[in-house]
């Protein structure tokens, strides 16, 4: 499904770009169709950057990205446009994920503006179906983002992404801004969507419980590198790296 090999990304900042930060350092991973790869690590370890690199939302410095058998590392933004509907991202903060000046209905119609999917009737039907799928009603369509709760907004965002029938979703800490009961609901929705549409997830989180509940495989990221990748069970039973042990310990003690 997605095959990433040896990608790196360096950010330059400061006067004349003299401060270099190697956010992602020679990372490789792959995700099989319909499976979830969990990505854990402390903040600043490069998880989010890696997610955006995989979707080509930001260009990588070196390395190859193969999506669905096509190498996309050298695709221009224009070439990417056709692939955009197959690979999407869900953000951490649902409150800033929708345009505050647009009604929910308008935001949900947007995927159809950029991709030729169907006519108006089909569109309305689809929106209703997806809203129902994420557990929301059509009465929300005329409201604006600030009138909805965080959990509702995150579900609207999920519905908006599902409308495009993506093959790969990067979930960038999708639950960390929500309270625990809502977290469970959102994860349930995501799991159902995966079952129904066979989507692959790259699930980024620092919450090990959430990751464990969702992932088939888990990769641990530390200072821009993936230091360990195992199936979820194995990782919890016998972590290979010292850092992973520490990470698990701190979490269990907490």
């Amino acid at each position: 499904m997605l095959n990433v090999s040896n990608i790196s990304k360096e950010f330059k900042s400061g006067l004349f770009g003299r401060t270099h930060t190697l956010a992602v350092n020679n990372v490789s991973f792959s995700i099989k169709a319909g499976q979830t790869l969990g990505l854990v690590g402390m903040s600043g370890s490069g998880k989010s950057t890696l997610g955006r690199l995989a979707l080509k939302l930001i260009p990588c410095d070196t390395g190859r990205i193969i999506f669905n058998g096509i190498e996309i590392s050298h695709y221009t933004m224009k070439q990417m446009k056709k692939l955009r509907k197959e690979m999407q991202i869900l953000f951490q903060n649902p409150e800033s994920s929708l345009n505050p000046r647009m009604t929910i209905g308008k935001s949900l119609e947007e995927p159809y503006r950029f991709h030729d999917i169907g006519d108006k009737e089909y569109l309305d039907e689809q929106i209703e179906e997806q809203l129902q799928f994420v557990g929301l009603g059509t009465e929300l369509l005329n409201r604006r983002p600030y009138q909805l709760s965080g959990g509702q907004l995150q579900r609207v965002c999920i519905a908006r992404l599902l409308l495009l029938r993506p093959k790969l979703l990067v979930l960038d800490e999708p639950t960390s801004m929500l309270d625990v009961s809502v977290q469970a609901q959102v994860i349930e929705v995501l799991k159902n969507a995966q079952k129904k549409q066979g989507i692959s997830y790259l699930f980024i989180s620092h919450d090990l419980d959430v990751i464990k509940a969702c992932s088939d495989e888990i990769a641990v990221m530390y200072k821009g590198r993936i230091i360990e990748q195992q199936t979820a069970e194995d990782l919890y039973k016998q972590p290979k790296e010292e850092y992973t042990k520490q990470l698990l310990d701190t979490f269990l003690n907490f």
Binding site: K81, K85, Q88, L98, N99, R113, R160
Partner: peptide, 17 residues
């Protein structure tokens, strides 16, 4: 820098839009 700009860009929106 808001998420919703990045989000709509990843949906495939043009700069003009």
């Amino acid at each position: 820098e808001e998420n919703y700009i990045e989000g709509v860009r990843s949906l495939g929106a043009s700069a003009f839009y």
